[in-house]
Every structure is written in structure tokens, then in C-alpha cells.
């Protein structure tokens, strides 16, 4: 429970200084002892970092904004692509095959056979992440949370399907494939990262947030 002291926490001391004038060396020394174990504590990237200009304008790692959709068509969510018979996300607009149904749930298929287009393949993705090896695109969309860290697989599949199906979606299939290959080579879905050309790194979570910012789901 909060103490009164928490609440009484004194006003934040803020100093706007462009001059760089600070106290004498000795007091700085005290202040700085043991510092710089982590020189940069937090960063917020502003500019676009991935993919085509159109989808990522205004994208920030926090994925709070819908600006990205101002100038491009937004894409369907993983949820739409995995239930093509209850709403949007028609696979006929892609070159891929969802496969046949293994188990029919309430009004929709909730388990697919392995006879659809494989996740790893020449026109899909290249890499070796064991989370997705041997599975089809549709099976990856249906992976549960603990089988698909950060739902990275589900989102990258949705992005690829959008890249093929939606005219004006900000990323090309090659853009999406490049993002996947980059993450796969840098550790994959579990604990991996994306390394941009400019040396900027995005965590898998941030890549997922980026893909979400290209989807129609507002909020």
C-alpha cells in the first residue's frame, strides 16, 4: 500500500540548461560514481524504421497511433485471416492455400491440416525458427500464445497475406519477407530482435507492434 511518503514525494526538480553549467567537479564526482553501467536508460525512436514509407509514417515503438493508415490501405488482422469463413480475409486473393479443415468448431474451422502452404518456402519465409518449422501459414496463425512468442508468427503471416491481397498496403511481400528473415537470423521469435540498416534495434514485441500499426484494427 502506498505510504503518505509516496504521495508526498517532493516535486520533481527539473533544470532546463542549454549552457551545461553545473556544480563543481567534486560534487559531480559524487554524483557520477558508479554511473554509466547503462549509459542510455531509455530511447524513443521517432522516425520510420521499417518497410515502406507509407505504412510507417508516424509509427512509434509504442504503437499508439493510427497515423500509419492515413495514406495507405490498412491490412486484415491475424484474427481475420485465420477465420476466412466468418468475415474478411479471403485467401483466394493470395497465392497461398490455407489447407483443409481438421476440426470444425462452432461455425468455423479451428484446426487445419498440414496440407496448406508451408510457412518456410520459396514464396513465403526463409529461416529456421523451430516455432514455425514444419507448419503451414494457417497453422502458424492458429498457434496459441505460448507456442508463438509475442504472436510474432501470426502477425508476420498476416502481414504477408496483406502484402499480397490488399492493394495499397504499405509493404510489399519482399518487405515482409525481409523483416522475417532479419528477425529469424537474429534469434527468432523468442528473444530475438530486428536490426535496422541504421543500427537501430527493435525487439520482437516492437516488430509486432509495428505490424499492428499497419492493420485495420483501430485500438
Amino acid at each position: 500500500m502506498a505510504t503518505e511518503k509516496d504521495i508526498e514525494n517532493k516535486e520533481n526538480q527539473i533544470v532546463e540548461s542549454d549552457s551545461g553549467v553545473v556544480a563543481g567537479i567534486e560534487s559531480r564526482r559524487r554524483l557520477l560514481k558508479g554511473a554509466a553501467l547503462t549509459p542510455v536508460l531509455l530511447s524513443l525512436t521517432s522516425r520510420p524504421v521499417l518497410g515502406a514509407e507509407c505504412t510507417i509514417s508516424g509509427f512509434m515503438s509504442g504503437n499508439v497511433s493510427d497515423h500509419g493508415h492515413d495514406d495507405c490501405a490498412c491490412g486484415f488482422t491475424p484474427g481475420a485471416w485465420k477465420t476466412p469463413y466468418v468475415g474478411d480475409g479471403n485467401w483466394n486473393h493470395t497465392p497461398f492455400d490455407p489447407g483443409t479443415c481438421k476440426n470444425q468448431g462452432q461455425g468455423q474451422c479451428n484446426n487445419y491440416n498440414g496440407d496448406g502452404t508451408p510457412f518456410f518456402g520459396p514464396s513465403t519465409f526463409s529461416g529456421s525458427d523451430p516455432h514455425y518449422a514444419g507448419k503451414t501459414l494457417m497453422q502458424v496463425l492458429w498457434l496459441s500464445g505460448n507456442q508463438d512468442p509475442h504472436q510474432f508468427g501470426a502477425h508476420i503471416v498476416a502481414a504477408l497475406l496483406n502484402a499480397y491481397a490488399i492493394p495499397g498496403y504499405g509493404m510489399s511481400p519482399a518487405d515482409v519477407q525481409a523483416i522475417y528473415a532479419n528477425v529469424d537470423a537474429n534469434g527468432g521469435a523468442a528473444g530475438g530482435y530486428y536490426m535496422g540498416n541504421n543500427g537501430k534495434m527493435l525487439t520482437v514485441e516492437q516488430v509486432v507492434a509495428f505490424i499492428q500499426s499497419t492493420l485495420c484494427a483501430y485500438q
Partner: peptide, 24 residues
């Protein structure tokens, strides 16, 4: 620059990025 003593925030005008730095 915004300097709170124990931590320093900077806005890099060239990139639009914001960082929180340790004092050193």
C-alpha cells in the same frame, strides 16, 4: 536538454528521437 540530476533527457532534433541518459 532536460536535466534532472540523476537522469538527463535529450531530444535529438536531427532524428526526432528522445533518449534518457545517465549523468556520465
Amino acid at each position: 536538454w532536460v536535466d534532472w540530476g540523476g537522469e538527463v533527457a535529450i531530444y535529438h532534433r536531427g532524428s526526432g528521437d528522445t533518449h534518457l541518459l545517465d549523468p556520465l
